[in-house]
Every structure is written in C-alpha cells, then in structure tokens.
Design a protein around this nucleic acid. Structure first.
Lengths: 151, 151
DNA sequence: ACTAATTATCTTAGTTACTAAGATAATATT
DNA sequence: AATATTATCTTAGTAACTAAGATAATTAGT
C-alpha cells in the first residue's frame, strides 16, 4: 500500500464521524431534544427499561443529572417512572417505545431508505470489506479510549 | 443483496460514529478541553486563522459564545487575538499550531499508528470500496441534514 | 467632509444542564 | 430493633450557552 492513500481515508473517516454527529444533532433538534438527550433516549430504546442508577452508569452522568434527564423525558411523555416491585427505592424508567418511534421515524425515514439503497448497491464481498474495516477501526478506537482512561 | 445484510452494517456504522465521538471526548478531556472546544479547535487547525465571525458561522454559535470560546483558548495560550489590518473591528484568531500539536499529538499517537497499520492491511482495490462507501454515506447524511433544516 | 447606517465583536442578564454533597426513604445486616 | 447501606432526589454552585443591547470601526449618502 502506498503511503499517500492513508491520509485521505483517515480524513474521510473523520468527516464521516463528524457528519454523522451533525445529522443526529439536527434530528434531535427537530424532535425537540438536545443532542445528548437524543443519544440517551436511544440507549433506552435499545436496552429497554432500566433503573435510574443503571442509566447513570451507562451515560456516565451523576444520579442528580439523571433525575433531570428523566424529568425532561417524562415531561414530554416519552417515558414513565415506575417503582420496581422487588425494591421500591428503585425507579424503573419505562420508555413509551411507540411514542418515541412515532417521533423519530419520520425524521429518519428518508435517511433509512437511502442508506439501505446504498448498502444494497455493494456486493456481499464488498460489504464484508466495509464491515471488516468498521470492526477493526472500532476496536482501535476503543483501545485508544481505554488506554487514555487508564493513565 | 440479501436484506439481512443491511441491518448489521447500519448498526455497525452507528457504533462506529458513537465510538469515535467517545474517543474524541476522552482525548479532549485529557487535553483539558471540553468535547466541543476540542472540535472547534480542530476547525482552527484545519482552516488556519480566521475571524471571530467566521468561527461563529462555522460553529453555529452566537458571537457571544464565540467570545467565550476564544477567551478559553487564549487563557490556555492556544490562540492569540489580533486585529485584522484591513478592518480593525475584525478579530483574527491565530492558532498556535505548534503548541496545539504538542498538546494533541501524544494523545493521538498510538491511534494514528494503529489506524495507518489498519489501512495498510487493505489492498488498494479494497480501500476504494471503503472510500466509496464513506463518500456516499457522507453525502446521504448531508442531504438528510439539509432537508431537515429546510423544513 | 459630516452624519447616519451598517458591521464586527464584546458585554450583560437570564437559561439550561451539569457536578458534588447532603437529604430522604427503602432495604439489608447484625 | 438499631444501624448501615443503597437508590433516588434535592439543593447550591458552576460552565457554556442565547438574546439583546453596547461599543467601536467602517461604509454610504448627501
């Protein structure tokens, strides 16, 4: 591999990450959420209901900040607070998946369609290459993050 | 292309973007900057010196917020304020590239090495595929963002 | 050339989301 | 039954933001 091929692809991958953030932030704003609230709401959708403490751990926020986060979601009726049956100190955050989907889906619809079209335009051998790149690049970034956090 | 190949790669590309943000935020914190300050400092390095107003446009911040941003950078001696010769209302923000590099480079060194190694592990034909994916995916995300902003 | 309008940045007041630390209430331990 | 622990919430203080107005330099109109 020639050295001159390295830089453009690194630049491109940076631009990719940046553009992605920008898009997600725009979507968030259209949905009446901040960028971080949107991200954390995604956690709730993906993992399903969890306690306030679990969300604090997952997000890295303090419990106080999570209280505020849930308050904002609750005010918009996107989640419900519910005491856990086994331990009534715990607050289960129950996402209203339907409502959240109804809010987000229209904003992502075109993006999803075009993405699927793009992916379909590659052969499965080509997709393997892309997938492979992603997997290894993700691993590298995680290693970097972990190493920095250790020091 | 089979339908089942679409979902994993979309998930993967999401994880990629998310992991990238997370790494950059960790780097930022290690450098004593916030995530957004780090991002905007990157703009300054990439584009070189610019006026406060240009930075406001580029970042989407108000001029007041940019004043604060420059103040924080200046306090760390990462940039200098300088009145433009042609128009003394304008404030040129002159990045101290050397100092900024000296701050950032050690944090990214390992990441850079590993990334280059990863890229070098692909054939140039494979790299073309990856590049192509990035280019088109970026275009789709930009379109999505623009369409949302128009509405 | 003088006055008014515009432009570029800064300042101020108010807002939002955060942290740290302590309060409250439920559960676990001895 | 008293004490310790745990889960969440509350409060006080902070950082970075916006909106609107202040300041100072330039440009335009007469």
């Amino acid at each position: 591999m020639q050295d001159d091929a390295i830089k453009p692809i690194r630049k491109l991958s940076q631009l990719y990450a940046y553009t992605s953030i920008h898009m997600h932030e725009t979507v968030a704003r259209k949905a009446g959420l901040s960028g971080t609230d949107h991200k954390y709401l995604g956690f709730l959708i993906q993992k399903g209901q969890m306690t306030a403490g679990e969300l604090a751990q997952l997000t890295g926020l303090t419990t106080g900040a999570v209280t505020g986060l849930i308050d904002r979601f609750e005010k918009k009726k996107l989640v419900k607070r519910q005491f856990a049956e086994d331990d009534r100190r715990k607050v289960l955050i129950v996402p209203d998946t339907k409502k959240i989907m109804a809010l987000m889906e229209p904003l992502y619809k075109e993006f999803r369609r075009k993405s699927e079209q793009l992916i379909a335009s590659f052969s499965s051998r080509q997709l393997k290459v892309i997938e492979n790149y992603f997997l290894k690049a993700i691993e590298i970034m995680q290693e970097t993050t972990n190493q920095l956090n250790e020091k």
